[in-house]
Design a protein around this nucleic acid. Structure first.
Lengths: 230, 230
DNA sequence: CGCTCGCTTGATAGTCATCAACCCGCGTGG
DNA sequence: CCACGCGGGTTGATGACTATCAAGCGAGCG
């Protein structure tokens, strides 16, 4: 994790956008900018909470571990997204998740004390954060139900649709996120091998196409049907 | 759903506790108090959002459906808890979950417009709500991981421990919540029959005891070990 | 040339959902 | 009073799904 000399553009992240004018110099003081390489971790599950991060560039996964080998990717975070907000409010001061870069990342870091102080003062910021939590909670609970009741194939269909919605397309028409099969598996909540097999079925049925770490949806309607009740 | 003449005690619910003094008369105007019988539903998944509810008394389940027969209980709500807050912030104005009374319930209802207006004005209220969301999100994501990676036995052990923590004990030493096996199954995210079998295993191993709809933990340490990584 | 590593495939076993049967107590009607 | 049927609780049998293990394959590299 290196320092980023260039720093924040003042437009991307929530804190900068919603920062009070008179508060801005203080923000500048308390902010630290970092660059992460692919694979580097911003914080790990169980680490003591130090602050909150705003992503300016790149892609991260937010994941929970289960033993040394297994994990569940809870969410992907890209430009403009918040990471580390799960550290707020819990009685324990430990991150309940890890955050790892999937592509080179630029983040700005705000000490938790200062951020909390901002929240106390900046009503608009607090309101936005509350809304953000509300949305996160909705998608999290939807995902819970899917994990409980949906088959792997359904969850994979769902995952691909969500990824397309969140990341859109790159110039080749693929979903604009490069994702290893292992990470896809962790996002779906299954194993590498199962992911592989089910993905092959979807390819055989001409519902999706895959090229390396890139995915594209060929038949959205059929994929959507896979996410229906059996 | 009948009207409740008695109404709110002004101490239990978040809104009353944190209400600004000058705002209190307005709260009284916009509040409606209701009584629900066991089995009655406060709102259903997909209903248009009308407002937010605070529970004064009783017990509710908050659940997501999957087809006509299956559901996942996302959370239990009791005295002092909020229900319907998932309606905030989503772009759609529909409840993403249902809320059903498991025991006779007294709630107070606040129109969403008025509640949102309160949030805009009442900073302490907004902050508490944000913290509440943050905690909900943490437990929700933990539950996600458990659903993805933990066995039914582990999830059942976890569920019983959580219930004990949340509801404490009644005078007979049982966990102070009466829960049908079907509801327990829906909370764990499995079927009725499986719940039954696994529960019997736990009973045979002298880890828990069951009497009708009541449960008690006999060997907390062993139960805790079941929630560990395999 | 041989090695390793990641990708791919096959075989197997464990977990769990599903369906069906059974038991038993209770209410009901003969 | 008894036979009957009904429904909820319980158990058994089966099969689907999926994790796991292990082996094969091929490309890149020392």
């Amino acid at each position: 994790m290196k320092k980023d000399k260039q720093g924040c553009d003042g437009k991307t992240c929530l804190l900068c956008r919603l920062s009070l004018k008179e508060w801005a110099p203080a923000v500048t003081l308390h902010r630290r900018n970092f660059i992460l390489q692919k694979g580097e971790t911003l914080f790990k599950e169980g680490d003591p909470v130090e602050g909150i991060y705003f992503i300016h560039e790149g892609l991260m996964k937010v994941h929970k571990h289960w033993g040394p080998e297994k994990e569940l990717i809870v969410r992907f975070a890209q430009k403009g997204d918040i990471v580390g907000h799960r550290g707020i409010g819990g009685l324990e001061q430990f991150y309940p998740v890890s955050a790892t870069a999937l592509a080179p990342v630029k983040v700005c870091f705000i000490e938790m004390d200062f951020f909390q102080a901002s929240l106390k003062i900046n009503h608009a910021l607090l309101y936005e954060l509350m809304l953000f939590y509300a949305q996160e909670l909705q998608s999290s609970e939807k995902q819970m139900r899917n994990l409980a009741h949906m088959s792997v194939k359904g969850r994979m269909a769902n995952a691909l649709l969500l990824l397309q919605q969140k990341f859109g397309f790159n110039k080749d028409g693929f979903i604009d996120i490069a994702l290893s099969k292992q990470d896809l598996a962790s996002y779906i909540g299954t194993t590498y091998e199962t992911t592989f097999r089910i993905l092959n079925e979807l390819i055989a049925d001409r519902l999706v196409a895959v090229s390396g770490k890139n995915y594209t949806i060929l038949n959205e309607a059929m994929l959507l049907r896979l996410t229906d009740i059996q």
